[in-house]
Amino acid sequence: MLSSPSAVYCRAAKDALGFPSIMLLASMTGFGSLAKESGLTLGMALSSTAGIWGLPGQVALAEMHAAGVSALFVILAVSLANARFLPMAVSFIPLMRDGIKRFGWMFALVQLLSINSWAAGLRSFPEIEVQLRARYYVLFALICMSAGLLGTSIGYYGIGIMNRAASLGLIFLNPLFFAVLLAGSHARPAIIAMLIGIPLGPILHMLSPDWGLLVTGLMGGTLAFLIHRKIQK
């Protein structure tokens, strides 16, 4: 059990500086290049990384903007693409709120939450004193975000100096990362939803670029939800 602040900070830095940082550096490099190609400024790209802080929503923003989708539909899709933050926050916040004197702080700290810090917290919190867990989370998440911002900048500038194949590769990183990350999900409703979403996405996009993705989510998601419940019975 880690019970001193310095031991907790050491553990957080050690956990964050390995795989999570490399992964964020790589995936956000792809996003930075995509943002540049989609006509976003560096400031917008960095704001999206820090502000949205979830690759699916960020990619949806850059991609849909480039595809000429109107503002309201872009915002709706970005938001829905990162809807997982709600259940993530619900399951995560109670694990560390005892270490925070004023609960109001949680509304600021939750901005740093990502799939990496969520998973690391769930893994490491049992070995950390309740009062010190928030410290672990904050340092871990700040290191991740630094790696993400660095990656965004590298991708944004890198795409200008690379040859054609490598530049295209940077853009291709976006769907590739997604496909691999999603392939790792184990939950049956999620898998059913993805299998329905794959054909629906391109087809509905051709029918209506504005509504395509939203209807894909609502139709495919609802159908998957119903199928899953039917199988469960």
């Binding site: 480039a66 809807a83 709600l86 976006n174």
Partner: peptide
């Protein structure tokens, strides 16, 4: 569970669209 299904269907649809009907380079 429903919200999760919606966001997964949307993400899979987005990837498929990016691969089959890309915009940009």
């Amino acid at each position: 569970q429903w919200i999760t299904c919606v966001s997964f269907a949307m993400l899979a649809g987005l990837i498929a669209r990016m691969v089959f009907i890309p915009v940009g380079p």
